[in-house]
Amino acid sequence: MSILVVADHHDNELAPVTANVVAAAKAIGGDIQVLVAGENCQAAAEAASKLDGVSKVLVADNAVYGHQLAENVAALLAEIGKDFSHLLTAATGVGKNVFPRVAALLDVNQISEIIAVESADTFKRPIYAGNAIATVQSEDAVKVITVRGTSFDPVADTGSAEITALDQATDAGLSSFVGEELVASDRPELTAAGIVVSGGRGVGSAEGFDIIYKLADKLGGAVGASRAAVDAGYVPNDMQVGQTGKIVAPQLYIAAGISGAIQHLAGMKDSKVIVAINKDEEAPIFQVADYGLVADLFEAVPELEGKL
């Protein structure tokens, strides 16, 4: 078996989740190669070559793959991907956008967001917002798979794979990049952070989130939010933790003023330690919390920040 892992990267930096996807590839077993497709992505390719278990890194460094436009990257993947038994990538923005198109071009189904590898053709994946786990088996010649990164422990960066340049370049001429608005932040990326502090509707306002940010900064963690807090306009939507937002699994997850709707729990219940701070002692979040504190978050969160 030969597995092609398609690297997730941005601004010439390899996304850490790629190491988790390589771990999923190791669980399947076989020769593992990594493809880095983009424009000016040599540093990302070098970082990928250090991932443990990778035998070879393929780099398609060309302007047509800039911003990883789906039509062009999918055409490349459909061309080189047919020689592999498995194509894997992270179930992040780029993977979700590009991989189903690749699957269609290869005339195979895609297995989305796997959380466990049972065998080379059998995988587990959540359905119904994580309320059920399906075990699925694929008979397709090429298994096209996206991986939920938090379900696999990342491989170490102790490897030294050779890097080979690919010279294919197809421009479908169907779409072009116009612009990007990224939220600038010194805090760690939500899905990669070891500690996440999240606020919910109980935080009450955008200003109310100040104490959440302060606690996160004290702990060196990222800030998340529930769907309710996002919908109320307290924080931007890319901070949403939940089935329709980000899936996180940090060492420590602190939920302040979050009731614990199913859709939120689906996004954080795999955290190692969960702390819930909520005024309402009946809040469902306490049913999944390792440590629950029934208290007013506006008193408890600053006090916690002061005492850590």
Partner: peptide
């Protein structure tokens, strides 16, 4: 909607 923000394409 992309990871970390918004992207505009034509």
């Amino acid at each position: 909607e992309i990871d970390g923000g918004l992207q505009t394409i034509e």
